[in-house]
Design a protein around this nucleic acid. Sequence first.
RNA 1: UACCCGAUGGUGUAAUUGGUAACACACAAGUUUUUGGUACUUGCAUUCCAGGUUCGAGUCCUGGUCGGGUAACCA
Length: 594
Amino acid sequence: MTTSDSKPENDKTDTSNPEAGESLDFVRAIIIEDNKTGKFDQRVHTRFPPEPNGYLHIGHAKSICLNFGIGQEFPGGQCNLRFDDTNPTKEEQEYVESIQADVKWLGFDWEDRLYFASDYFDQMYDYAEQLIMAGKAYVCELNAEETRQLRGSLFAEGQDSPHRNRSVEENLDLFRRMRAGEFEDGSRVLRAKIDMKSPNLNMRDPIMYRILTARHHRTGDKWCIYPMYDWAHGLEDSMEGITHSICTLEFENHRPLYDWFLDALGIYHPQQIEFARLNLTYTVMSKRKLLQLVTEKRVNGWDDPRMPTISGMRRRGYSPQAIRNFCKTISVNKFNSTIDIALLDHCLRDDLNKTSPRVMAVLKPLKVIIDNYPDDKIDMLEAINNPEDESAGTRLVPFTKEMYIEQDDFMEDPPKKFFRLAPGREVRLRYAYFVTCTDVVKDENGQVVELHCTYDPETRGGNAPDGRKVKATLHWVSATESVPAEVRLYDHLFTKENPDDVGEDEDFKDSLNPDSLEVLTGCRVEPILKDARVEDRVQFERLGYFCVDKDSTPEHLVFNRTVGLRDMWAKIKKAANPNPNPNPNPNQKKNKKK
RNA sequence: UACCCGAUGGUGUAAUUGGUAACACACAAGUUUUUGGUACUUGCAUUCCAGGUUCGAGUCCUGGUCGGGUAACCA
C-alpha cells in the first residue's frame, strides 16, 4: 500500500529552474525581469497569507503552489506562511491548525517563517501615529451608514467627512483614546486622508482602524482597535521583506492604496501582483459557501470527501503530487476561467496510476460456484502489485471453490459488445483460471443470485496452453477468504456545471446533487487489505482508485472511491442507450417547493 | 454614469526581439493489452470584430464589441 502522506514530503523533483527556459507564467516572468534589473537585489521572497476563518480549498492550493513554488524554484527564494488575523470576530485557532496541516501535506515548508499579522499590531499602531503626525490620517466620528453615504458611489464623487481637517494634536489624542478603550464599538475610525473624489473608491479616505471589542485568538484582550486589510497587508509584506506580494484579481483596485500607504510611510515597498482565482466546474469555491454547506449539514464537515477543501480531498484519496501537477497544468493568468473538473480527474488518475498498488475488490458481489473445483482447496495465486512499477512486487491471492464476481460482469442475455461473462461463455479470472458459465440460478423474482461455472485447471495463472483466447478478464474475490468492507462512492456535489449561476429566487444549494454519496455495504475485498491503514491508496482493479477512510477499523473496513477508472464500456452502454431511466434531477426540481 | 483589468480550438495553457499557431484535457476513430485501465496512432482553431503600420501581425497602433472586478467599520 502507498504510505499515507501525513508527513510533509519535500520532494523538489518537480521543481525546475524558472530562469532556464521553458514557458513562464506572467508572475515568474515579472520576477525574472526584476532580477535582471536588480529591483530587489536578486531577492525573491513571497508569502501565502490566509485568513484563519475557514479551511483551505483547491483554489488556495493554486496560490500555495504559486507562492511556495516560486520560493523553492528561485535561487535563495523563500516563502512565508502568514496568518492574516486582523478580524477577531471571524477567526479561530481551529483554522490556524488545519491550514498549517494542509500546507504541510501539500508538500511545502515555511521552515521557521511562520508569522501572524497580530504579531505586528504594535508596529502597525506606531505607523498609524506616524501617518497622523504627517497629517495623512484622521479620526472620523461618522457612523457606518454616514460613512457609506459620504463615500459616494461608482458614479458619484464622495464628500469630505466633517472631521477631515482636525489638528494633528486632536487626531493623536482621539486615536490614543480609541486604543485605550474610551469609545464604543463603531463610534470612531481612523481614516487615511487621501481623496474623496477619486474614481477609485478604495482611495476615498479608506478606514485604517475600527473599534472592535472582541477577544483575539492570539492577542486576547490587549487590543480593542483592529487594523483593516488594506492598511495592514502592505505593512505585513513590508516588515517581512516580501518582494512579490501575490494576490487575487479583486485586489487590483486596491493596489494604488497598497502603494499609497507604503509611500506615505516611506518604508520598504514590495510589488503587489494579481492573478485570477481558480474556478472549477461542478464546484463552489468560496469559503462562505463552503462554510454554509458545513453549518447546514449538507455535507459531513469540512473534510467531507465531496468538498473541494484540501482536507476533503486528502480524505477522498487525492495525492499531494496530483494536486501539485494540476496546479502546474492550469498555470496562472490574469483573466477568469473555469477549469473542467475532468482535468483534475486526469491529473489524479495520472499520478495514482503510477503509484497505487492494485488489489481486487468486488463492490456488488455475485456468487460463483466452481463445480469442478475441490471443496476445501485454497490455491494461492501470484498477482502483480503494480504493472506500472515493477519494484512494487507481487502478492498471493487465495482462490477457492466459492467466489464472487461483480454483478455488472455477468449478463444472461448480453448485447453484442458485451465481452464479459454470459451463459456458456468462457472468460478469464485475473491471475487465476479460465472459467465457463454453465448454469444460472435465479430467485423467485427472476433475479440472478448465483452462477455455476467450471474451470480449466490447465489455465492456472491465466493463460491457456493451447493458445485459446478469451475476450474478457474479470476481477474476483474468494467468497470464503475475502473480507467484508463498506465502500463509499462519490459524485459531483452539484448537478450544475456552474452552481453559482443562479436566478433571482434560487440558491446555489438548489443544485446540490442528491446522489453525490452512495454507500455500498456488503462489498468484499482481498484479505491483504485487512492491514490497510487510514489514507492508504489502492486501485481496485477495473473499478477505480480507492483509499481507506478515517472511519475504517480492522473490524469494519471503509473505503472511499477517489475516482473511477476511465470506463469505455460505460460509454458504449450510454451510446447504445442514452437515457435508460430519465435523470432524476429535472423531476426533482419540478417537485421542489420554493 | 465612472474607474481598473482582460479576450488564442468545446476546456485550460503556449508561441525567442513582429517570421509555419504548439501542448494537455475533453470528444471521436483505431492499435496493443491477463484491468473495456495504462501506453501508442489519427482527427478536431486561420488567435473577439473593424481598420491601420509592415515583405510579414496572435504579438505593435486606433476604434469598437464582449466578459470580469470595484460602492463591509470583511479579507
